[in-house]
Amino acid sequence: MNDTEAVIKKHLHRVAPEANLDQLRPEDDLGNALDIDSMDFYTMMVALSEEFGVEVPEEEYGQLRSLKSITTFLERSVNRPMDS
């Protein structure tokens, strides 16, 4: 598990403290796998956005459904040059 994943899991644990995150597979839909709703998801994305210092564009928001897609998005956004 890389650092980005660990941070995402830290925030997932905050919204779903009883869930066993070790069993979560990278492609799993987080809503179905952890029974989190749109407000939980919103809470997590606000926290991640602040922690990584990235904005989440509207066209991306709906695509971020799994550990893998969120990790990819965050790593890409953090490494993106400021002017792009």
Binding site: S38, M39, Y42, Y61
Partner: peptide, 17 residues
């Protein structure tokens, strides 16, 4: 809603409810 959210920070998103 989608148009509105394009202009907003993630913390200010409007949700359907």
């Amino acid at each position: 809603l989608n148009e509105q959210n394009k202009e907003r920070a993630v913390s200010d998103r409007l949700l359907p409810p």
